[in-house]
Design a protein around this nucleic acid. Sequence first.
DNA 1: TCCAGTCTGGACTTACAGTCCAAGCATGGG
DNA 2: CCCATGCTTGGACTGTAAGTCCAGACTGGA
Lengths: 214, 214
Amino acid sequence: MGNVEENPDPRVRTWAPVCRAVALLLGPYAEVVLHDPRTDRVLEIWNPMTSRGPGDPSLLGELDDLTPSAHDVYGPYEKLLADGRRLSSVSAVLRDARDAPSAVLCINLDRTPLEQAAAVLSAFGAPTVQRPEPLFEQDWSERVQHVIGTYVRETGRPIERMTRQDRLAVLGRLDEARVFAVRRAAPVVAGALRVSRSTVYGLLAELRAPSARD
Amino acid sequence: MGNVEENPDPRVRTWAPVCRAVALLLGPYAEVVLHDPRTDRVLEIWNPMTSRGPGDPSLLGELDDLTPSAHDVYGPYEKLLADGRRLSSVSAVLRDARDAPSAVLCINLDRTPLEQAAAVLSAFGAPTVQRPEPLFEQDWSERVQHVIGTYVRETGRPIERMTRQDRLAVLGRLDEARVFAVRRAAPVVAGALRVSRSTVYGLLAELRAPSARD
DNA sequence: TCCAGTCTGGACTTACAGTCCAAGCATGGG
DNA sequence: CCCATGCTTGGACTGTAAGTCCAGACTGGA
């Protein structure tokens, strides 16, 4: 992470103590990044989780999320690393004495170990072979929206641009969530996916009967 | 849990040490019950989680699950207590010297504290605003059991002695819980209430159309 | 004993779940 | 430009479960 005290950039000298403190507090599972929003490059990085370093371009679109809100703090967002690690990410716009944006701070927390620990705990006294038969709630149609929304966010692909594979994946999740045990669910799902009822049943059949294993 | 050493029932004297050991090992979160499968009653109980005691009927249908399998050990099953605690439950058929079934052992582990801990862990570094769904409910048939169980506890009236008013009340709660939005729910509820399908629909109609408000 | 209220099994109707197919519509190769 | 291929679609169809209805059985009380 370089010799910060000698870093020529005044912004780094200003913010480095905060960054180092956060990096220390959250141990090896948090990455702290200071971005230059004008050049879209990394100013400094602590506990890097990828191979990024100062001067590298600010991959990951960490700065893209900043436009819509009126505040200076954003998130937490969920990010997915290429190797499958799941990150919770917050960003903050840092301003200089004249109140002009001078840097952007990002903290990326790797939630994978926490989630593994949670899985160990909740598996204790194993809850049967039956998987957590996910719920149905008063308004199960919100669950449909949630599953689809999550998928769209993960892939960055809106419903209109989904491929057949996308639809198969989404329907797989919905089926696992036992959504189709609810009456009238299929037409609702079809509508949500902008697809006909026939297509839903066709894709579901394909999912449920991979018996054509030739 | 009574003075086990003086318990006149030889089965209790035989199995008590095992039961006590398990109850001690799993601390306050596990209940150990010894059932008499012929009379369908509790022989002895350690760390009771409900108000059951020796001689009480073996509520909860802990013995119902035993028929279908060829082995003598069953589970873990998931059970829902009336107050919402979630149990992992295993049962074992205990046999005497002549290999005849003499008692049934049930161990019920309260998973709630573990799940709370798991929830704390997985909530750490909160993943966005999402997580509207309580990790409560499992599959809907357990919701049925839960509603009925709660009612039985509240009124102290077992299913067999319920009046028409009781059934109306229970069905009202189930209807509010949107249980009947799930396919195949009505027959299951009818079975759980020890009542015919016709009766369920009749009572439901009465509940839903009190329009004759004159 | 009868009566009133309730429950029951079973026959029935309705509504939805799920299947099937001919035709439409993209996409891409020749 | 045409055709071939693969996917989707609306609609017709079948099957299964949801819900209704009713004559008869059961129950407790007068």
